[in-house]
């Protein structure tokens, strides 16, 4: 699809904003609608858009498979690790209260970290899924869209 001039230009304009919006949704999820799940999907959709316009191989140069594979595991690890950290401080698993000076601040930090973990996993899984499906058919299949 890379030969369509309009799509290339509009895509180039849109992708940074989609990424920015994803970050906003991720880190503003405590106050407005949003959170790790949504942010992960939005973030992934930016990369999918890039892959649709410029081809999967180019997208994989930016975000190699190894990085994605690490990301998938890292998110789960962050989530589970937070629970272990609170256990080390003597609290029950996944009780974030001891992570800061006051319990409520600890909860806030805990939610923040956990959402980050969720976001990383969801984004990496979604991009990986797309890459796998797209690569299966070779490069010509993307013209179907």
């Amino acid at each position: 699809m890379s030969h369509h001039f309009v799509i290339r230009v509009v895509g180039k304009l849109l992708i940074p904003f989609i990424l920015l919006f994803g970050l906003y949704v991720q880190f503003h999820g405590d106050f407005g609608p949003g959170g790790g799940f949504q942010a992960g999907v939005i973030f992934a959709s930016a990369f999918v858009l890039y892959a649709l316009i410029y081809g999967v191989d180019k997208a994989r140069e930016i975000l190699p498979d190894d990085v994605l594979r690490v990301g998938i595991a890292l998110g789960v690890l962050i989530f589970g690790g937070t629970g272990v950290v609170s256990m080390l401080w003597g609290a029950p698993y996944l009780d974030y209260s001891p992570l800061a000076s006051t319990p409520s601040a600890g909860q806030h930090i805990g939610i923040f970290i956990v959402e980050l973990g969720v976001g990383i996993t969801v984004a990496s899984v979604m991009v990986t899924l797309f890459n796998l499906f797209a690569r299966r058919g070779g490069d010509d299949e993307l013209d179907a869209e």
Binding site: D30, G32, G34, G35, Y96, S104, I111, E115
Partner: peptide, 19 residues
């Protein structure tokens, strides 16, 4: 009061129902 997070959905998602 407990989590200082105004979005209840996020609070429940990540804290109350962390498991």
């Amino acid at each position: 009061a407990k989590t200082t997070v105004p979005n209840v959905v996020t609070a429940v998602l990540a804290s109350y129902r962390g498991y």
